[in-house]
Design a protein around this nucleic acid. Sequence first.
DNA 1: TACAATTTGATTGTACACAATTAAATTAAG
DNA 2: CTTAATTTAATTGTGTACAATCAAATTGTA
Lengths: 141, 141
Amino acid sequence: MTKDILKLDNQLCFPLYAATRQMTKLYRPLLEKFDVTYPQYLVLLVLFETETITVKALGHRLFLDSGTLTPMLKRMEERGLVKRTRSLTDERVVEVTLTDKGKAIEKKAEEVPVAFTKEINLEEAEYFELKRILTKILDQV
Amino acid sequence: MTKDILKLDNQLCFPLYAATRQMTKLYRPLLEKFDVTYPQYLVLLVLFETETITVKALGHRLFLDSGTLTPMLKRMEERGLVKRTRSLTDERVVEVTLTDKGKAIEKKAEEVPVAFTKEINLEEAEYFELKRILTKILDQV
DNA sequence: TACAATTTGATTGTACACAATTAAATTAAG
DNA sequence: CTTAATTTAATTGTGTACAATCAAATTGTA
């Protein structure tokens, strides 16, 4: 029965793909008050750590390219969350920084992972095992 | 240091989100010869199992709604992979079936998961543990 | 110095993804 | 038999994703 390898229930990537979308859906109401989407929230998390980052480095960190980031960062700029500045030393480079409004989110944002972890009913061991395996996959790419 | 819960490296959903996109990227060249995307490939997998399914049931199986499926199925219909037929007994229902061209893909499609599993360098135990935990998450939703 | 190769964002085009709404058909209650 | 409630797809609008291409700036090399 080699044919069973095409059964949906035997796929690994399908639950990966579906679980990702379900998780994003769980985040939506938690992020609503900050008026950001889940990918935008990830950009904020990076900026909380680094203060300033180039589009290139941000893309490397989040595994996203400029075709996704450029319009997304422009939307975030329109909403007053970030500032985009072209580097003085190299005009090709755009640096992204948090505005005061963006910085203000950091204090309140801690409740987001707390609330999420509560909603996603996962054993602590499973939580870390899942994270470990996924990170291993990413490290290979 | 409660603040560390906002660190990107401490997030569970970020590697989930990133790994999903990387996996989709690995699938792309494998699916190219069939001229389908990864979500379209999932539709094919369902149809290999059921022959005929309503949009509603397909959405339930793949965790997708009509706003995603309707245009996607129309594209697949344009490419001659599926047929969309409005039910005779209930005009609200649309039934999706494979065409001969769609059916023909099944024989060759087995090489896709084979090639993918080879590329993704994961211990068998990790493979199944990852699948198990993700499925558990999906069952909760 | 010239100038080809490289780097970096931006742009374009296609394809999801989903919330919210609409429209058509069916079902159920009185 | 009527009409309100429900069911089911389709539509609309916004926001990712990403391949492919472009354009501008910088760098390396003869």
